[in-house]
């Protein structure tokens, strides 16, 4: 089925629209590997003061949106999806909070549709994962092949019997057996393609094109997006600031949610 007018965009991306109706919009986007529940310790805090939008990227969590092999071969396709969701909800003042690869998805979406976004908050961003001459992304091409093989070794964690549970349930409970089954589990074919789109991307030239205030949240000890990469992003985006979180690892939204909340809250207050 072609992705077009016939698809209910909100349902297709398992969009959850909560918080204060009519309030300032904060849109949370998950990265490679998991789904919108990556934000389960962070998003609820902002529901008291903001309109909060959560969604799943194609192939992840509860998304039923058709995967387009060509369109989703690059992050542009994912950015296009984000813009479609914003258009469907008629949003024009979005604070886009993107984790991991979705940080760059947010950058591309903002560059593509500046009228939709008023600020970006990037958690663990990396415009390029693979080292390149003077640039240190942290990985060699062989490392990415190794990830693909780790993904395929974990094929067995995903069986087609699980697909209906994962793909087709818009009303998902916060944390149930279902989440246990679906969280971090993606159709292996899509996962491999998403991994390529993510880890082979190079969006360094898009960074200077960002036209909204941007917050870069960098973990002190992140092996996917090391400190110098976060610094690179903050240096390249014109109106940006860097906050270093004391958390370690690549997922402070899960491992140190309070630090993320504090940094984001401060940013939102500063960029009303």
């Amino acid at each position: 089925m072609p992705y077009g007018e016939t698809v209910d965009v909100l349902r297709a991306h398992n969009v959850r629209d909560t918080g204060v109706p009519g309030g300032r919009v904060v849109m949370f986007a998950h990265g490679f590997g998991c789904d919108q529940h990556m934000w389960r310790y962070v998003a609820p805090y902002f529901e008291a003061s903001h309109r909060v939008i959560l969604f799943d990227h194609v192939g992840s969590g509860g998304a039923t949106a058709p995967y387009d092999v060509e369109r989703h071969a690059s992050l542009d396709g994912y950015a296009e999806d984000v813009v479609r969701i914003c258009a469907e909800l008629e949003l024009d003042d979005v604070v886009f909070v993107g984790h991991s690869v979705s940080a760059m998805v947010g950058v591309l979406a903002q560059v593509r549709a500046p009228e939709r976004f008023s600020a970006l908050a990037l958690v663990g961003p990396s415009p390029r994962y693979i080292n390149d001459d003077a640039y240190t992304g942290g990985f060699e091409p062989a490392d990415i092949d190794d990830l693909l093989s780790a993904l395929s070794s974990n094929y067995l964690g995903w069986s087609s019997a699980m697909a209906p549970v994962i793909m087709g349930n818009p009303e998902r409970p916060e944390l149930g057996a279902e989440l246990t089954q679906s969280f971090c589990r993606t159709d292996p074919d899509i996962a491999e393609r998403f991994a390529r789109a993510t880890f082979l991307s190079d969006n360094r030239s898009d960074l200077p094109l960002v036209t909204v205030p941007t917050l870069v949240m960098q973990c002190r000890d992140d092996l996917i997006a090391p400190m110098q990469v976060g610094q690179y992003v903050a240096d390249a985006i014109p109106d940006s600031s860097l906050v270093v979180l004391e958390a370690s690892g690549h997922c402070p939204n899960l491992s140190a949610p309070n630090e993320v909340i504090k940094a984001l809250d401060t940013f939102l207050t500063r960029e009303p």
Partner: peptide, 13 residues
Amino acid sequence: AGGRLYHETHLSP
């Protein structure tokens, strides 16, 4: 290296 990426993107979350 691949396992580390998998750890950060799947196991740890």
